[in-house]
């Protein structure tokens, strides 16, 4: 499969935090959801993708090109939506369009106006008067109006009401219809991903825990419940993390098949939701593969 974004052994150090040895592939034509707790390194990873940050070590390639020599060509083909307004607050969309539009070779003013109309965005009102949802729609309208092949979004659904969240997901499915586009977006609202993500990338404390198709995630991870007697040093190795209570244990396994072999009917094994996976993985201090 053709990777649109490719991180090879990328490391970026900060005081007290680092993205370390990240290898990440984002596949063309699919939606990849990027999950992780707050402060896990989602925004840093996205900034590395956009060349807003440069890796200390390793390489970032987008569309197979490197930023050192092809920065403009790469960014021509990316549409970005950030968490928070990056546009001049006092300006209206018409003026913002005058700044953003000419930057792109394939800017389509008619398409932009069409999106503005569809999203019910006023062109003559200052962006700072927009609600959070409207600001997001404005960013999205700008991101979609220059034939971008890769849409990168940082927490696009944070702070949006459920109705607009759903509209947004529908819209994203719309733009995915031709199969030429790729979407990468970070979120901590995992229910968004259940609907449209094809791949899930999960980051914890600057480390990529996994990047799997939703099928692999569903087949590998399971939530296990049973009585405490089932736990011993060997069986605990099956789990990412175990929560014990007086009435039994609840644990996450990343190897459902093996767990089924070991416990058989003795334990209840269910599908783990992304939220379960995030919760248990974040509680475990032991690294798992």
């Amino acid at each position: 499969m053709e990777p649109v974004i490719e991180f090879t052994n990328v490391t970026k150090q900060f005081k007290g935090f680092a993205v370390e040895n990240m290898d990440l592939q984002v596949n063309k034509g699919f939606v990849t959801g990027f999950i992780g707790a707050n402060g896990a390194g989602k925004s840093t990873t996205i900034k590395l993708m956009m060349n807003l940050l440069r890796p200390d070590e390793g390489e970032v390639r987008v569309f197979g090109l490197d930023y050192a020599t092809h920065e403009k060509a790469i960014k021509e083909r990316i549409g970005f939506v950030y968490d928070g307004n990056v546009f001049y607050e006092g300006m209206n969309l018409k003026d913002i369009q005058r700044i953003v539009g000419p930057a792109y070779r394939h800017w389509d003013g008619a398409l932009f106006r069409q999106y503005a109309e569809q999203f019910e965005l006023p062109l003559n009102k200052a962006v700072k008067t927009f609600s959070k949802g409207m600001q997001m729609k404005a960013s999205l309208a700008l991101a979609l109006s220059h034939q971008a092949e890769l849409i990168i979004m940082d927490e696009p659904t944070a702070g949006l009401d459920p109705i607009f969240r759903r509209e947004l997901l529908d819209l994203l499915q719309d733009i995915m219809l031709d199969g030429e586009r790729t979407i990468f977006f970070s979120t901590h609202i995992t229910s968004d991903l259940d609907r449209i993500a094809d791949y899930i990338a999960f980051i914890k404390k600057g480390k990529l825990m996994f990047n799997q198709s939703i099928h692999e995630v569903a087949e590998n991870y399971g939530l296990v419940r049973g009585s405490l007697e089932l736990l011993d040093r060997d069986t605990e190795k099956l789990f990412v993390h175990v929560d014990r209570t007086a009435s039994g244990f609840e644990a996450l396994t990343s190897d459902v098949r093996k767990t089924e072999d070991v416990f058989g009917e003795a334990a209840v094994i269910e599908r783990a939701s992304l939220e379960d996976i995030m919760y248990f993985t974040n509680r475990s201090d032991v690294q798992h593969v």
């Binding site: 956009m50 960014k75 021509e76 990056v86 546009f87 953003v100 792109y104």
Partner: peptide, 9 residues
Amino acid sequence: VLLNSLPYT
């Protein structure tokens, strides 16, 4: 952030 996300070096 905006300018550096647009196709400019």
